[in-house]
Amino acid sequence: MTSGEASDYTSAEPLMAIPAVTPKALLADKGYDGDGLRQSLLMRGILPIIPPRSNRKAP
């Protein structure tokens, strides 16, 4: 989604805001594991399927 060493995580929110058919779920890797993104997806009715990072205190 982004070029070079830019973080894809910061691009996830604008991508979900694109007016298109709302997906039922988002499948992503550990790099997208964050409470803010998870809550935003759930508020939009999108199920986050993201494995927790190994250092996450509450998986």
Rank of each mutant, 00 (worst) to 15 (best):
M1R: 13
M1D: 11
M1V: 10
E5W: 08
E5Y: 06
E5A: 10
E5C: 05
E5L: 04
S7H: 10
S7W: 05
D8P: 05
D8T: 04
T10A: 12
S11F: 03
A12Q: 00
E13G: 10
P14Y: 06
P14H: 07
L15R: 03
L15P: 00
M16W: 02
A17R: 10
A17Q: 11
A17K: 13
A17S: 11
I18W: 07
I18Q: 10
I18S: 01
P19H: 09
A20N: 08
V21P: 06
T22P: 02
A25S: 15
L27V: 12
L27Q: 01
A28L: 10
A28I: 05
A28V: 05
D29L: 11
K30C: 14
G31T: 06
Y32K: 02
G34D: 10
G34Q: 05
D35H: 15
D35Q: 15
G36V: 08
G36N: 13
G36D: 15
Q39I: 07
Q39R: 14
S40I: 05
L41C: 02
L41D: 00
L41K: 00
L41R: 00
L42W: 08
L42Y: 05
M43H: 11
M43C: 10
R44A: 10
I46E: 00
L47P: 00
L47Q: 11
I49Y: 02
I50A: 01
I50E: 00
P51A: 09
P52L: 09
P52G: 08
S54R: 14
S54T: 09
A58N: 14
P59A: 11
